[in-house]
Write a protein that binds this DNA or RNA. Sequence first.
DNA 1: CTTGAATATGAGTAAAATCATGATCGCGGA
DNA 2: TCCGCGATCATGATTTTACTCATATTCAAG
Lengths: 223, 223
Amino acid sequence: MSKIMIADDEQKIRKLVCDFLKNVGYETLEAEDGDEAFALFQKHEDDIDLVILDIMMPGLNGWEVCKEIRALSDVPVIMLTARSEEFDELLGYESGADDYVTKPFSPTILVKKVEALLRRTKSAAYLGGEKDLTFNHEAHEVRLNGQEIELTLKEYNILKKLLENPGRVYSREQLLDSIWGYDYVGDIRTVDSHIARLRTKLGDWGNRRLKTVYGIGYKLEEE
Amino acid sequence: MSKIMIADDEQKIRKLVCDFLKNVGYETLEAEDGDEAFALFQKHEDDIDLVILDIMMPGLNGWEVCKEIRALSDVPVIMLTARSEEFDELLGYESGADDYVTKPFSPTILVKKVEALLRRTKSAAYLGGEKDLTFNHEAHEVRLNGQEIELTLKEYNILKKLLENPGRVYSREQLLDSIWGYDYVGDIRTVDSHIARLRTKLGDWGNRRLKTVYGIGYKLEEE
DNA sequence: CTTGAATATGAGTAAAATCATGATCGCGGA
DNA sequence: TCCGCGATCATGATTTTACTCATATTCAAG
């Protein structure tokens, strides 16, 4: 099960959050200030699946810890912000946080955010990680089990689009709109052609994951 | 696709937000003050999937609109707050808002929040009690006790419709009107066929909850 | 309270309509 | 010329509709 680190200087809050997270099956790790949080993260980096950071903490504050962590890892981060603080939410996103929760917060909502974030990042593993399909946007290259697959522009864009939201269904119109452009006029079934070619090129993986949703469109199925 | 209502008295802001939302495939509805917002919501209640409310508006202010909407519906609500305002976030949560964004905001962030919120609410368990049946509109997926049930379009739409108002009876005509379209011509008892297949596919749950109201139509029984 | 006519619904089947696929072809730009 | 792209078409698959007949329900008359 996933391990979550929570950093907050208030012991009560830490306990509250930990209790709820443990309740739904997560392991937790606690830090009571920014310095400890970062130290702990460095030590357990490979084990930690998600980080929750309070902003106002002794030592490094939450934003700073977040930036430091970001320098090392893409682990998902949720920030806790006290309502009275003059906080600049934007800064949070700039520092690389994935989500934030304002105090006072309902633990249930926090748990839901944690779950949503884990779900999202775990299914995005293909994009960064060591799974079977990797995207290298810079090089415009796709690799399946390390082997490069030569995709044409349209194929590449369609695959990329579907990969942006694994599980979500895209209608042919949506794909045409976002890849071809709003002003595209032409046969809607063109999408089918490209999907077919993608499936061929991606072989087994393509057949397994590129799903047709009858009467709706296509989606990339999560596994 | 989801429809989103945005209420703000500044035309520029409305346009900005609408453009971004449309860009990622949402439909939008605009209101320029609190009164119009509430009126519009009442009228299109069933179609609106999410509401974005500015706080400072002529007529009813954002908090008030939110409360009024909450009296009718659980639709997700995002509040827009000017950062300079002395605002009490708690009031926002008390009035039932699900999230808020402070101005000036980046449209991208707003879009992300919208998506996060829709994801959260749309895949949430439908009926308060047991968590056995879940709808994921994005993925066009229905799960019963976690296991996916493959439904055809019509089946899916009928189930969704009935689920919108558990306990309420829908006549065959109403279902035909809202799912097939008012101009449908054909056998009214087609509905029966689909209900029958739904019951089969949903097994025990279907037989228990999909009730026939003799002489009237069908309903989804609450438990 | 029972019966039976009238009506409504369920189950099953088969036909019809719709949709997706994969193969193929021609166009046009690199 | 080659290659990416869009279009078309035959084919098969899936979904939707229509229809039949058995069963269930209602309601009023006996």
